[in-house]
Design a protein around this nucleic acid. Structure first.
Length: 587
DNA sequence: CCACCTTTGAAGCTC
DNA sequence: GAGCTTCAAAGGTGG
C-alpha cells in the first residue's frame, strides 16, 4: 500500500491532516515546513499557536462536556495522528501530492484549477491532463487494484463533461452522474434526464439510464432484477450498491466501468447485491455483504437479489411480507456519498479502523472541502434523491423508521447526555481538536459558510433551499467540535457569541449530534472566518478551505464550467471571501 | 449477536 | 415553523 497513497493519493488527507495537526507544536512546525515553506508559514504558525492555546484552553474549558478519551481511544487517535503525519511526509517526499500551481503547498486549492480544465463548452480541455493524472487517492486504495484497472480506461475521457474526473480529489462521482456543471443548472432536470453520457468505450454520447445516474437504489419495482450490476463486484471497495436499476435495465449500468475508481466505488458501493444476481462476487470483494436493500432483519434474503420489486413479489402474510420486504434505504446524502468515497482513502492513510474515528476525520474533511467540491456531492445527492423518488414513488423515509431498532433514543433518553458524552466521544474530542483546529479556522468558517444547504442550494439544486442568509450562516459543523478549537467561544454561546455573533445561533442545526454541539460552536468559526478573510491575501496555507468555502455563493454557485472558468483566478476567489464572510457574520 | 459510536444531511415527527 | 428524532454508511468495540 505504500504506493497507494504514496503518490498523489494523499493530497486530501494529508493536507487535511497537516492542517489538522498543526495545533501541536512540533507537528505543527513539521507540517508547516513540509507544507512547503509557504511564505504564509508564519501566519499559519501564529494561527496554530493560537489554536493550540485555544485547544488547551478548550480542554480546560470543556472538561465537563468531554472527558479525556479512554486510553485505548487516545491511542488510536494518536495513531491516527501519526498516520496523518506519515501521510504528510509521503506526500512531500513522494511528490505525488497534487499541487496547485497557484498554491503549491496546498493541494486543496483546486477550485481555480478545476475550472481550467474545461473548455467553455464544458468539454474537458486538452490541457487538463495534468489534473487527470492525479487520480483520486481513493483509487489508490488498497484493494483497488481492480479499480485501477477499471478506471484506467480513460478516466479523463470518460466524459468530457465530467470535470470532476480531472481533479484529484474531486468527485469521482461526477462521472457517474455527469456532473458536469453544465448539467445542473438550477433547475436541473431530473437526474435521469440528465445529459447524455459519453460511452466510455465508444465515446459516443448516449442517454444515461437512470441507473447510470445513480446506481444506488434497489431495483425499481418494475425494473427489478434485470440488471446485474457489474460494478458491484468490480469495485473493490465497499461495495454493494444499492441503487436501482432503470426499468429498462442496463447492461452496463454505468459508464462507470470506464470511470475512475472513485466513482466506481461509489456506484458499486451502492449497488445492491441483489441487483447483481448471484454474481460470484456478489459479495463485495472484501466479502462484505451489503445490506443495501434488504432490511437488516431480513438480512439478505436468499433471493436478496430481489429488488424492491421483491416486496411486491411475494405476497405473503402481511407481517412477514413487510419484514421480508426489502428495505429500501434512504438515499445517501451528500456527506454520506462523500464518506463512502473517502473512507477507503482515509483508512488506507491511517491505521484507524474505527469508523467512528474515521467518520470524524471525514467530517472535518468534508468541512474543509471547497464549496464546489461539496456542491458536487450535494448535487449528486440531489440526483440520487430524485432517482430514488422516481424509482420508489411511494417510498417514504418514514417507511424505514423503526427498522433500525430503536437506538440511542432509548439510551440517550435514559442515560442522558452524561453517558452519552462519557462513553465514547471523548477520544474524538481530543483527536478532533487537533485536526480541527486547523480546519476549523479555515474550514470551519468555510464550512459554515458553505453550509450544506448553501452549497447545494446555491450551486445546484433547485430543490435545495435557496441559500438564504440564514443558510449560509448555518455552520455545518455545529457539532461541537468547533468549540473545542476555540475555547473562547466554546463556552456557551452567549459569551462567545458576542464576537461571532448571533448568526450562528440558527445554526444550531437540528443535527442529531445532540447536546454537545449545542454550544455556539459556529461562532468561533465565524470569527475565524473573519480573521481569515483579512488574511485572504495569504491563501496559500491556511486557506485552502477558507478561500473557497468562503467564496461568495454567487460566484461559486454555478458549478458549470463556465462559472468555474470565471472563477479561474484564485485571487478573485479570495477576494470574494471576505464578502461571504461578511454576509455570514451579518447573519 | 446486536447496539453503539461517529459524521452530515434529509426527511419525518412533534408541538 | 421550530425543534427534535430517525436513518443513511461503515466497521471496530463492548455488553
Amino acid at each position: 500500500m505504500p504506493q497507494l497513497n504514496g503518490g498523489g493519493g494523499d493530497e486530501l488527507g494529508a493536507n487535511d491532516e497537516m492542517i489538522s495537526f498543526k495545533d501541536e507544536g512540533e507537528q505543527e512546525e513539521k507540517t508547516a515546513e513540509s507544507v512547503s515553506a509557504e511564505r504564509d508559514l508564519d501566519d499559519v504558525k501564529s494561527s496554530l499557536v493560537n489554536e493550540s492555546e485555544n485547544n488547551s484552553s478548550s480542554s480546560d474549558s470543556e472538561p465537563t462536556e468531554r472527558r479525556p478519551p479512554p486510553r485505548s481511544d487516545a491511542e488510536s487517535y494518536e495513531k491516527a495522528r501519526e498516520c496523518f503525519n506519515e501521510a504528510l511526509r509521503r506526500q512531500q517526499d513522494g511528490g505525488g501530492l497534487f499541487k496547485s500551481p497557484h498554491y503549491p503547498g496546498y493541494p486543496f486549492l483546486m477550485l481555480p484549477d478545476l475550472a481550467s480544465p474545461y473548455l467553455p463548452n464544458g468539454a474537458l480541455s486538452p490541457t487538463a491532463p495534468q489534473y487527470l493524472q492525479m487520480k483520486w487517492p481513493l483509487l489508490d486504495v488498497p484493494s483497488s487494484a481492480a479499480l485501477k484497472d477499471s478506471r484506467s480506461p480513460t478516466p479523463g475521457h470518460l466524459s468530457n463533461k465530467v470535470p470532476v474526473v480531472q481533479h484529484a480529489h474531486m468527485h469521482p462521482l461526477t462521472p457517474l452522474i455527469t456532473y458536469s456543471n453544465d448539467h445542473f443548472p438550477p433547475a436541473t432536470p431530473p437526474a435521469h434526464l440528465s445529459p447524455e453520457i459519453l460511452d466510455p468505450k465508444t465515446g459516443i454520447p448516449r442517454t444515461p439510464h437512470p441507473s447510470e445516474l445513480s446506481p444506488y437504489y434497489p431495483l425499481s419495482p418494475g425494473a427489478v432484477g434485470q440488471i446485474p450490476h457489474p460494478l458491484g463486484w468490480l469495485v473493490p471497495q465497499q461495495a454493494q450498491p444499492m441503487y436501482s436499476i432503470p426499468p429498462g435495465g442496463f447492461r452496463h449500468p454505468y459508464p462507470a466501468l470506464a470511470m475512475n475508481a472513485s466513482m466506481s466505488s461509489l456506484v458499486s458501493s451502492r449497488f445492491p447485491p441483489h441487483v447483481v444476481p448471484h454474481h460470484p462476487h456478489s459479495l463485495h470483494q472484501t466479502g462484505i455483504p451489503h445490506p443495501a436493500i434488504v432490511s437488516p432483519a431480513i438480512k439478505q434474503e436468499p433471493n436478496g437479489e430481489l429488488s424492491p420489486a421483491a416486496h411486491t413479489k411475494s405476497p405473503g402474510p402481511a407481517k412477514k411480507e413487510e419484514e421480508k420486504k426489502p428495505h429500501i434505504k434512504k438515499p445517501l446524502n451528500a456527506f454520506m456519498l462523500y464518506m463512502k468515497e473517502m473512507r477507503a482513502k482515509v483508512v488506507a492513510e491511517c491505521t484507524l479502523k474505527e469508523s467512528a474515528a474515521i467518520n470524524q476525520i471525514l467530517g472535518r474533511r468534508w468541512h474543509s472541502l471547497s464549496r464546489e467540491e461539496q456542491a458536487k456531492y450535494y448535487e449528486l445527492a440531489r440526483k440520487e434523491r430524485q432517482l430514488h423518488s422516481q424509482l420508489y414513488p411511494g417510498w417514504s423515509a418514514r417507511d424505514n423508521y423503526g427498522k433500525r431498532k430503536k437506538r440511542k433514543r432509548d439510551n440517550k433518553a435514559d442515560s442522558a447526555a452524561e453517558d452519552y458524552s462519557a462513553r465514547n466521544k471523548k477520544p474524538c474530542v481530543q483527536y478532533l481538536p487537533q485536526e480541527k483546529m486547523i480546519d476549523s479556522p479555515a474550514s470551519s468558517h468555510g464550512s459554515m459558510l458553505d453550509s450544506p444547504a448553501t452549497p447545494s442550494a446555491a450551486l445546484a439544486s433547485p430543490a435545495a433551499p435557496a441559500p438564504t442568509h440564514s443558510e449560509q450562516a448555518q455552520p455545518l459543523s455545529l457539532t461541537t467540535k468547533p468549540e473545542r478549537h476555540h475555547p473562547h467561544f466554546s463556552l456557551i454561546s452567549k459569551p462567545s457569541s458576542s464576537s461571532s455573533s448571533s448568526s450562528s445561533a440558527s445554526t444550531s442545526s437540528s443535527s442529531s449530534s445532540s447536546s454537545t454541539s449545542s454550544s455556539s460552536s459556529s461562532h468561533p468559526s465565524i470569527s475565524l472566518a473573519i480573521s481569515s478573510s483579512g488574511s485572504h491575501s495569504t491563501p496559500s496555507l491556511l486557506s485552502r478551505p477558507n478561500p473557497f468555502t468562503s467564496l461568495h455563493p454567487s460566484l461559486l454557485s454555478p458549478p458549470s464550467p463556465f462559472h468555474q472558468a470565471a472563477l479561474h483566478s484564485h485571487h478573485a476567489l479570495f477576494q470574494t471571501q471576505p464578502l461571504s464572510l461578511v454576509t455570514k457574520s451579518a447573519d
